[in-house]
Amino acid sequence: MGNAAEARRSVLEDRPAGERGARTVELTKVYGSGDTAVRALDGVTVEFPAERFTAIMGQSGAGKSTLMHCAAGLDTATSGRVFVGGTELGGLSDRALTRLRRERIGLVFQAFNLVPTMTAADNITLPLTLAGRRPDPEWHDLVVRVLGLGNRLRHRAARLSGGQAQRVALARALVTRPDIVFADEPTGDLDSRTGAEVLTFLRRAVDDLGQTVAMATHDPVAAARADTVVFLADGRVADVVRHPTAAEVLDHMRDLGGRS
């Protein structure tokens, strides 16, 4: 495992001092080729500043998930560049990307976030387990406390409610103290009240824990909880709104809908 330890150190040392968050430069992703080619992302340049909550808004098929996956190193871009905490993802080997995901990126999906046969506690520490490390106990306890999960840790993931499962997923994303958390429609499967609760926890991850969050959504109310909203349409950045209100977001969406 000496090799692995070496690779791990190199990933961490790549990070320029102090630089966190993530950004993309002219990111393009084309699925398929020839007649059936789909240009899911077309020259997308966005900034996910450290310790901020950024929302990606757009209609179905706009390219939100594709942006999340390329930025998180789950999928490779066709062209353009992605930086996470100052490290460029392009050219990293599968192993290096895997280590980077495990140590510097947090992920929350819309559903199927947890290994059903494991307990909530084991799911939370999964990335660390895979790295063969133990959690920093203070940080772990803080995350669990802030997300209100103290009395759920021993439950099997399959038995958690939708909202609880998303909070456990968020805790897993935060436990490594990542450079950024990517959340793809984390409230998409929840009712509005539970969804609002999860949004509150995402907010607290930024405000109380000093973390960085990027969230894809097509719900204007959810987007309004962010510090900045980036609007995507047909794979391009159509607009950027700072300190949004739900009404503003809705207006922008209407404009976009009218245009396309």
Partner: peptide, 13 residues
Amino acid sequence: REIGLLRAVGATR
């Protein structure tokens, strides 16, 4: 799906 999830959160091949 479970294996894909493990890969996403940092399991190597």
